[in-house]
Structures are given as structure tokens and as C-alpha cells.
Simulated assay, not measured.
Amino acid sequence: MTGATSMPQLVIVSPALRDANNGNWQTARRWQRHLAGHCHVRIVKAWPDALATGDAAMIALHARRSAQSIAAWASARPGKGLAVVLTGTDLYRDVITDAAARRSLDLAQALVVLQECAPHALPEAVRAKAHVIFQSTTARKALAKSSLHLRAVMVGHLREEKSPQTLFAAARLLAKRRDIFIDHIGDPLDPALGKAARATMAAAPNYRWLGGQPHEAVRRHIQRAHLLIHASRMEGGAHVVMEAVASGTPVLASRIDGNVGMLGADYAGYFPWGDAEALAALLLRCRESLVGEGDRLIARLAEQCRQRAPLFAPECERAALRRLVGDLLSRPAGTS
């Protein structure tokens, strides 16, 4: 095969494209790069489109948001070449409450989940279809950081699933500290949460809401921080967690399956979801450990993240993805 025209054509359906700058788009674009030279990949928001007749396989991100495209593919190409990727809210909410999302699972020949706890959340009848593919990112050099203060960053658009209220409350609890700084990156998808972020800045001088940022700027913020905070209520497998791990930046995370499946069951940086006091206490322990006091928590977290980092290597994701696509392309119509 010498060119794109001689390669099989695969379509990735993503409910968000470049302008959204979110996890679904980043996954779609990265997978397109991983499959370069293996098949010709295009990314669309909905299928079919004008180029649909050439598609040999489909990867659809999000069981509910891509449900119409998934159903259209299954009707046009029954039993052939369809993988559905469960990216977060569809896995932990929609497959329970939404009939279209559940039907997406039944129609697919393969289900892709993004962390090791996720298969247990699937209905038992479709669990055998599950493939765990950890997402990947490029490694960055861990930077030396000041011991004079602790800087934490939380990354995620302001919406209910990301639980920014937990961060707001923790920042207020630490408002009198002049040695703990919290940066918060994300667009105000919920205007009320944007208003709450501004109110938190007024009440807690050590908290800064920076709004949305380009991806490269986000990675630099993570790289420079002592800690990433990830307070989400539900996640399929967050990009920012792996980006922190690959940058040598430890994570403080809510104890939910989406985070445990990324960081491991024995990780020492969890707090109960929604518990601002527990998050504030972890931040204080990490601040103490920077100057050699307390239980050296931040060094322990850094070592645990270093041990998990190989899971998020690009070559691992690339190999797993190519195996999946090879199976989709070789599967004859009418099989399941």
C-alpha cells in the first residue's frame, strides 16, 4: 500500500471537533495520527456524510452523543467494523438512563474503555466486547519547583461533572494561606459556575481562575505546578490526569472509578468526591512535605505516578489501537 487511496478508510465520529478543545476531540485527533500509514482516517461529527461510501470501519466516541451515527452505520453495514468508545458520562450515566446509549453497546462489535476499572461498569451482557486502551501523551521533563510555596492547578471546563464547587470550597478553606496557590483553567460552560469562580477569587486571594487556555499552555501550567487537582464526579479516563503523570506532576484526585482506573487502587492521593475539607487537608500535607515535614506525601505521590507513567506511553496506545482497527477491518459482515 503506497498511498491513502490504497489504504482502507476509517471514520472516527466525534461529538466535538477542534473548536471544542475537549477530550473527545483530542482523542480523535491523536488516534488519527496513530493510524497514519495504517489506514486513511477522517474525523466527522455525524455519519453518514458525502464521503461515507468509502468507509470500511467506524470508531464512534460516546455511546449517547454519537448514537444516531452508530445506528446509521449498523443499518448500512450490519455486524461489520464498528467500535464504540465510552468516554465518560456515557459509561457512568447514560448507559443506565438512556435507551439509545444502551443500544449503541448492543450494535457495536467492540467497546473501548479508557481505564482499567471501566469494564466493570458495562452491562454484563456486553462486557466481553470490552477493550481497555489507555490514552497517551508525550512525556515532559519534570521541572524543579520552589519549596517556598505550593502551586496546584485544576484543569477542566466549568461544568457540574468536573465538580468545581469542591475546588471553590477548598480554596476558601485555605484563603488565609500565603504559601498555597491554586490556579483553575477552563471555560465557563455553566455560567453560574463562572460566577462562582469569580466570587471565589474575591474571597480567596490565593485562587486564580484563568478561563480557557490553549492546550500547549495548559500543559505548561501542569508541568510547572507541584500538583494537579482532579475533583470530578464522573470520568471515563481524563486526559489531564495522564498529562500530569507524564510531566512528573503528582495528582490529587476524587476517589471515583475513572480516576482509580488511571492511577491505581493503592494511590495515596485520593479524597472522597465532593469533600472539600479532605482536599484542603491533602494540600496542607503536600505543602508540609515540600519542606521535609510530615509524611513526605508529595514524594510518595510522585513515585507512584512515575510507576504508572508507562501505561500512558504513545507506543502502547498506538499498538493497542492498531490491533483494534485490524480486527474491525478483518471482521466479515454479519459477525458480532
Rank of each mutant, 00 (worst) to 15 (best):
G269T: 04
L82Y: 00
R208M: 01
A118L: 11
D295N: 11
I298W: 06
K80H: 11
H62R: 10
R64L: 15
S66R: 02
A225V: 00
H226S: 08
Q26R: 14
I59P: 01
V126I: 12
V112Q: 10
V132H: 11
R331E: 09
L122N: 09
R42C: 03
D327R: 13
T2A: 15
R30I: 11
A244R: 05
A60C: 11
G54T: 02
R29N: 13
V241M: 09
A333G: 14
T97F: 04
L282M: 13
R77T: 00
S69H: 06
L10E: 00
K80D: 00
E317V: 01
A144P: 15
Q109V: 01
L227E: 07
L114Y: 02
A265K: 10
Q223C: 15
P272H: 01
C39K: 04
H149T: 11
L10H: 01
I59K: 05
G54L: 02
F271V: 08
G294R: 07
H34N: 14
H149K: 08
D327W: 15
L297W: 03
G23Q: 06
P214F: 05
D275N: 14
V132W: 11
V245L: 12
G292T: 07
C39E: 07
R219M: 14
K129P: 13
I229K: 13
A309S: 12
A28H: 06
G37E: 07
A299E: 15
Q165G: 09
S147Y: 08
L82K: 00
D190Q: 05
A83M: 00
A333R: 06
M58I: 15
A276T: 03
G258Q: 03
G258P: 03
I298P: 08
W31M: 13
A196W: 04
R172L: 10
L173C: 01
C305A: 14
R77I: 00
D327G: 12
I12T: 01
L290W: 03
Q26T: 12
R208I: 02
L282S: 07
K145A: 12
L279F: 09
F271W: 04
K129E: 12
I182T: 00
L279C: 06
S69E: 04
A302F: 07
A281E: 13
Q115S: 09
L297G: 05
A320Q: 13
K80R: 15
M262F: 01
P332M: 04
S75M: 08
D106R: 14
T137I: 09
A56E: 13
G211Y: 03
A139E: 15
T53F: 06
A101D: 03
A268F: 02
Q223H: 05
E235P: 12
Q223S: 15
R219G: 04
D94E: 12
A196I: 02
M234Q: 14
K162Q: 08
G237H: 07
F181P: 02
L324I: 10
D275I: 03
R255V: 05
G81I: 00
A125S: 15
H226M: 08
L297A: 05
H226C: 09
S69P: 11
A72H: 09
G156R: 06
P314T: 10
